[in-house]
Structures are given as structure tokens and as C-alpha cells.
Simulated scan of single mutants.
Amino acid sequence: MSPVIGALAAAGILKGLLSILTMPALGELISPKSTLFIILNAMGDSVFFFLPIMVGYSAAKRIGGDPIIAAVIGGVLVHPTLTPLVGKSLGALGGFNFQMVQYSYSIFPMILAAWMAFKCENWLKKHLPSYLTMIFVPFFTVLVVSAITLYVTGPVIISISKWLAMGIAWILVKSGWVSGLLLGGFYQILVIFGLHWGVVPLVANDIATTGHSYLNAILCQTMISQGAAVLAVAIKSRKENLKSLSFAAAISAFCGVTEPAIYGINLRFRKVFISGLIGSAVGGFITGLFHGNMFGFAGSWIGFASFFNPKNPSDLSNFWIFLASSIASTVIGFAVAYFWGYNDEMKKGGEVEKPLKPGQAKA
């Protein structure tokens, strides 16, 4: 999922801004029926609609398969001629009825399809003469894997994905402030060890399956608070190099990229990192308490537009929860770091190595 995250975040911001521009309270600056809206909505929606193609391409590169073949299989799943068949029977066998399901906005079916394509490619290359592989490896791989996905694995995984998304939402709503406090307080510790990459597909599946994510709304606060903590260093420090680096890291964190803050400053002054955790625990507590929800992938302050519901632009409840939580995360993360977490007498710790993304080789 890691190569797709930037595109998902950008698309989420655009869709959120469209929600703002179509709000009746602002005079509906762009009509939902206008050509301009249709074009901008296509820009924001395309990454989600064609997500299986991008996930297939990315997964194939990760496991060593042919990315083009995987992308073609993803294209089969979202082909417009198959869309009208959603909910209809694709045929019956042995009393079992195979139904067509919606694959746009899906993730997990294509990941398994990319793996099956990889296995199929390798088997065919071993058993076909070399002069036939260029044509018949793609032919049989697309034919076999697409059929298996459409008829068997796809419907099963789509059902599991929906239950998974609903299960996560149910847990977070029922646990409320407890999950907000724990996730807000400890998520960035997972980032240190690279374990957060296991959470990213869950967030993506939430948004792709249900159109929203209670989980991402809480995680958003962890970026804001780490940015606030490093901003405190930038303002308090009199060391020019550290000050300029900290300001740059704070801007980056408020734009949703926390790595410069965490690995460049906060972890090297451990109390600064802890200050960020304290702030995000409070922000997560507020988000969980009021069941804050998020409709896009982009986080931190720049992700504010993701808290406007595209299906109901006039509903501002989640935005107000985001605003209250984010102010709390910023103020507390900054204050704790400024008064307790940092002073110029502290010695900077050794450089902390940033964990590799899944599938990324060391240089």
C-alpha cells in the first residue's frame, strides 16, 4: 500500500475541498450538477475507483511479478461493462450461485490476485517453451486469475473486508475515549519500529469499503501533536541550525509527513517525542469520546477537508470534533515540549534510523 498512500491522501483532500465548495451554507460555490464539479470529482475519485489497478501494480512489483499483468487483471475487475452486473448471477455450479460484486474501491482481492498471478506466471514460464512465453504467459495468467477472482476469491474477500471495516468501526465507537486515548498515545511508537505499515491497509480498507474511518480520525491527531512538539523546539531553541531544521520539520508534520520531525528531532530529544505522545493522547481521547469520523486519507492539519462528509456537506459535526481535538493536540503537545521536553542544555541523542517501507531494500 505504501506507494499508493500519497495519491490516496491527495484525492481525499480534493474530495474534501469539493464538499466545502458545494456547501449550501457557503452559497454552493460549485453546483454538484456542473461540468466543473464532475471533472474535479473525477480527479478526486479516480484513485479510489481504479484502486485495484494501482494496488495490483504495486503488489506485483513488491513480490517480483509482472506489474502490467497484475494491472490488467485489476482493470478486468473494474471494467465498466461488468459494473451493471453487480449483484447479479455470473452462473451456478453444483447448486452454488456465483454473484458479481463491486471491486472499485477494494484492496484485498487484488493483493491476492497479484500473488496468484505471480505464481501462475512462474509455473507457465517453467512449462512453456521460451518462444511462447511472451504471448501465452499473459494470456493464461489474465484468463485464469481473473476468472478465479471474479467467481471465487473476490466475493469471499469483499465480504470479509466489509465485516472487517464494520468490526473496526464498531469497536472504536463502543470503546470511545479508551481507544482514542490508547491509539493517540501509542501509535507513533509503532511508527518508530515500522509496525504502523500493518495499520495502513486497515485505514485504506475502511475508507474504500465504507467511505469513512473512525480509526484514521484518531491517528490524525498523532501527526499534529508531533508537529506541535517540534514547533516548540523551533521557537525555544537559540541554536540556528536546530531552529531552522525544527521549523521545517513542523511544517512537514502539519502537512501530514512526520518523519522529519520524529527521526530528525523528536526521538533524538526523547522528552520532545514523549511530549508529542501526551498531546496526541489528549487529542485522541477527545476524538474517541465524541466519535470523530474522517472521510479521506490525508492527516494532520492539512487533512481538515477530509472531515467534511462528501455525501452530506452541510454536516459539520466531524469537522468541529477535528478542530477541538487538533487544537488540544497542538496546544498540549507544544506546551509540554516547551516547558518540560526541551531546553538548549540537553544533549542530542544519536541519529535514529528510519525503518524501511515494506519491500524497500537497504541502500
Rank of each mutant, 00 (worst) to 15 (best):
M1L: 09
S2A: 10
V4N: 10
G6Y: 01
A7Q: 14
I13K: 11
L18I: 11
S19V: 06
I20A: 12
M23Q: 12
G27W: 03
E28N: 09
L29G: 06
I30V: 13
K33Y: 02
T35K: 13
I38S: 15
I38D: 13
I39L: 14
I39F: 13
M43V: 11
G44C: 07
V55E: 09
A59G: 01
K61N: 15
G64Y: 07
G64P: 05
A71P: 04
V72L: 09
I73R: 12
I73Q: 09
G75Q: 07
G75V: 07
L82N: 09
L85H: 11
V86N: 12
S89I: 00
G95E: 09
N97T: 15
M100C: 10
Y103H: 13
S104A: 12
P109H: 08
L112C: 00
W115V: 09
K119W: 06
C120H: 01
E121H: 02
W123S: 13
K125D: 10
K126I: 04
K126F: 02
L128P: 06
P129K: 06
S130E: 14
Y131M: 11
F136Y: 13
F139V: 10
F140T: 07
T141P: 11
T141G: 06
T141S: 09
V142G: 03
L143N: 06
S146F: 00
Y151I: 15
V156E: 01
I157K: 10
I160C: 06
W163A: 06
I168V: 15
I171G: 00
L172M: 14
S179Q: 03
G184R: 03
L190H: 02
V191R: 14
I192E: 02
G198M: 08
V199T: 08
P201M: 07
L202G: 12
G211W: 05
T222P: 04
M223N: 12
A229N: 07
A229I: 00
L231T: 07
K236I: 10
L242D: 10
F247Q: 10
A250E: 01
F254Q: 02
F254I: 06
C255W: 06
T258L: 05
N266R: 05
F269D: 00
R270F: 12
F273V: 11
G276C: 06
S280H: 04
L289V: 05
H291M: 00
N293V: 05
F297E: 08
A298Q: 12
S300F: 02
W301C: 04
I302M: 13
G303S: 07
P313S: 11
S314A: 15
L316V: 11
L316Y: 11
F319M: 03
F322P: 00
L323S: 10
I332A: 07
F334A: 03
G341W: 05
N343W: 10
M346F: 02
G350C: 00
K354T: 14
P358M: 12
Q360C: 04
